[in-house]
Structures are given as structure tokens and as C-alpha cells.
Design a protein around this nucleic acid. Sequence first.
DNA 1: GTAGGGTTAG
Length: 550
Amino acid sequence: MIKLLPEISQSYQTPSRTKILHALITKTHLSRDPFYATKLVRFYAMNDDIVSARNLFEKTPQRTVFLWNAIIRAYAQAQKFDDAISLFIRMAKTNTKPDNFTYACLIRACYENSDLDGLRVLHGGVTVYGLGSDFISCSALVTAYSKLGLVDEASKVFYGTFELDLVLWNSMISGHGCCGFWDKGLELFNKMRSLGKQPDGFTLVGLISGLICPSLLPIGQGIHGFCLKSGIESNSHVGSALVSLYSRFKCMSSAHNVLSSLCQPDLVTWSALITGYSQSGDYLQALLLFRSLNMEGKKADHILISSVLTAAAQITNVRPGIEIHGSVFRHGLQSNIMVSSALIDMYSKCGFLGLGIRVFEAMPEKNVVSYNSVISGLGLHGLASQAFKMWEDLISKGLKPDESTFSALLCACCHAGLVNDGWELFKRMKDEFCIQVRNEHYVLMVKLLGMAGKLEEAYDLVLSLPKPVDSGIWGALLSCCDVHGNSELGEIVAQHIFDNEPKKGAYRVMLSNIYAGEGRWNDVKQLRDDITDGGQRKVPGVSWIDGYGY
DNA sequence: GTAGGGTTAG
């Protein structure tokens, strides 16, 4: 028993060690002891072995609140929310009543499952059982309400407590940030400091992550300065939040400097930098950094690989993508859904749809994103009927299509000129699947109708939309007018766009092309003069083949 | 009880 204690106190247990430990504990009849049973349940949960965790829980006769919490947390973390709730109800009927940690764990599960009703019920329970000022349950409530966008409800909980601890401050600061109120977060940060509370890494990450709009760069730099002065910058979470911040604002040299200043940047920080380069359009730099990371022997995970595959999909050469596919095998990530979906997309965008389909077929488990990737690839390659077969397959498997599924399908209809199929899908998307129609769906519908020569029908669709109509939708119609040489409608459409966006030269160029097609050179000149007189310049389009020589 | 990087569509 004494010999076992060091084993028990290990914070990390591999699956095999847990099994051995379980066998040893069983031999000494200690597995019936709720203390050891709780430890084992936690270890099993850590190793995603929820079945063993449950078996052990059921066999333990004396169940303490810790054991109940361990099994409930195991289910909540495995996203098995219904099971977690059933256990909670079962627990409430026993003599062992739920405590603040039970509530906190279930409250977290609620926001992870976007379950506002469940959250309100638990909030009621917290109040009834006298936990309305408890740090543990209140910080969980503040985070949950904020993550669901209800920052006012979060504030009520926050200000309703008698006393505030650091976690509560952090939860509220981060809550304001994730709801878009970075200024309120900063106000709280200053108030907290004026009350003598010292911020920690959580506080700073909450503040930094709320800075989304690029005009907030000076605020971000100010917070970065605070991190440097207080030495918090060396915290790896803060470091990666800063790398992401500068990447969001496309200040890649600052992002790179933050990473270089860290003693041992971890995988997440590298991942933030590589993704930053990719999202700033510097795909080559993203790919080269990933390669150098590989050369150093650092083990990439599914998130980094998926992200770097997005960069590989944007270039005209499939070689980097193939190289990354090699590292997918080396790291044993070939069964990962996120990685496979990114691989399908990369292959189809690089022109190797067949390889993408092979990846799709080899997937042991598929989700809606994998289907979206393959449907999109098929549509992009003009194979609409195969895209529809995939769509039927998706439905027959009981998967729920999302807005991207319909974008991919409508795009396939556009490429193949399938007007009736497109209309039907568009209606089903709204009526049967209750998916909110977005601008991109309207753009695709307008393109589908317009390219098929049904310009009036497309125009009627745009007129039926609530005002103001996005310029992208009008622009799609204008380009169809250009293709069909319809200057009469083109002029009407262009006027709508000029009213919305008088400064955008690209649409004037489009209209001037329609005039040029009809030989109306005076009108062409007038439009071109309008552009240059207004000090505008259309950025010329470029195209190239294998420009990177990777 | 609070924190960092993320695959598809556009």
C-alpha cells in the first residue's frame, strides 16, 4: 500500500500503466476504496477509456462526492453530455449531494454544447443550494454566459458575488473580450490593479484575445509592453496569444520577434506563427517554417498539420502538400478527421482530385467537414453528379449538412449549369434544414442563374433581398451581365453598386468592359476617367504557374 | 472554476 502511493500521485498515467495500477489495487482490495477508485477513474478518463472508468465507478460501493465528480467530469469532457446529466440526476437522488465542482463541471459542458437552457437550470441549482457567491461555480457561470454571448448575464453573476478572486476577475475580463467589448475588459483590468490585485497569464491572454479589429494594434502593443515589464511574456500561453495578435494584424515581423524572444517556444506558439504567415498570404514562409520545424525533429500535431495544409492548398505546386502527407504518416495522423479533410482539400485544389478521393475513401470515420471537402473538390472539377452522390451519401449516413455543404453544392451546380437542382437545394436548405442563408449563398444563386442566361430571374432574386444588399451579390450579377453583354441591366446593377461603394474601381472596369463589347468607346472613356479622376486604381489581376519553385 | 494554435464553404 505504501509502495503504491507514489504511483497513485503521478499526475500522468499512460493506458498501460493505468491497467497495471488497477490490477495491483484490485489485488490488495483497495479498488473498493473510494479514494483509489477516484484516482483510477481520473486516469481512465485521461486516457479516453470511459468504459473502464464507468465499470470501476459502478463497482465501487461507497461513492464520495469526489468519485461522482470524477465520473461526471469524464463524461462531460468526452462530450457525452446526456450521460453526464443522467449521472448528475442519479447523484442528486442519493445522500451525496452535488458540490460546487459538480456544478462547475456541468456548467462548462453546457457552453461547450451551446445549451443555454441547461445552463439556466444549473444556475438555478447553484442559487438554490447557496452557491451564489461561491468562487468555483460563479467563475464557471461567468465564463459560460460569456461564451454564449450573454455578457450582461455574466456581469450580473460577477457583480452579484460578495468577494472577487483572481479567477473571477480573469473570467470576466476574458468574457468581455470574447463578446467584443475589449474596452470593458481593459477597464476591469485597470480597476483590478487599482485594488491591488496582480494579473497573471490568464488575465493577459483574456485581454489580448479580445483585440480583433486591426485598428487596435496600438492597444495590443501597449499590453505587450505591460507583459514585458511584468515578465509575463515568458508564459507560453501569453507568448502564443501575442503571436496570434500580431498575426491577426498582419505584423509578421513583430509576431516572429515575439516567438524568437521565448526561451523554448512550444508547438502552439510555432503553430500560431506558421498559421499567421499562411493567413497573411505568405504561404511559402509558412511551408518553409514547417519544414524547418520538422528538420529539428519537433513532432507536429493534427492542428498544425491541418493548418499548414491550408497553405499548401493555396500554391500551384503539389510537392509541399505531398511532403506534408509524408509527415502525416510519420506522425501517425492518417486517421485524424481534421487532417484528412485538409488533405482532401489540398489535393483537389492542387489539381489531384483523384488523390483527394483516395484519402476520403480511406478515412475510417467521416464527418460533415470531410464530406464538404470532397463535395467542394468534385464541384471545383466540374463533377456535379458525383458531388450529388456524395451529398446523398452524407444524408443517408445521418450526418447533418451545414452552410458550407450548401456552398459547395451550389458551387458544383454553378460549374455544371444545373439551375433546377440549384433552386431545389436552395429551398431545401432554408425549409428542410433550417440553415440561415448567407451572402455567399446568394452570390452563388445569382451566379448560377446569371451564367445560365437567366439574368432577369437573378435580378428579381436580388431585388427580393432585404436592403442594403451586399455589393458582392450585385457584383456577381454585374459579371453575369458582362458575360452575356447585357448593358441595359448592367447599368442598373452598376448604379446600385456605385451608390453603395463609390470608391471601388473594379466594378467600373466591369461596366466599361460591357460598354467596350458594344463598341461604346465614349462611355468606356468616361468610366475610365472617373476612376483616375477619383484617384483610384484597379489592382491588375495576375496569374502564374509554379511561381514559387519550392 | 479562468487562458494560447485549427480542417471545409465564401
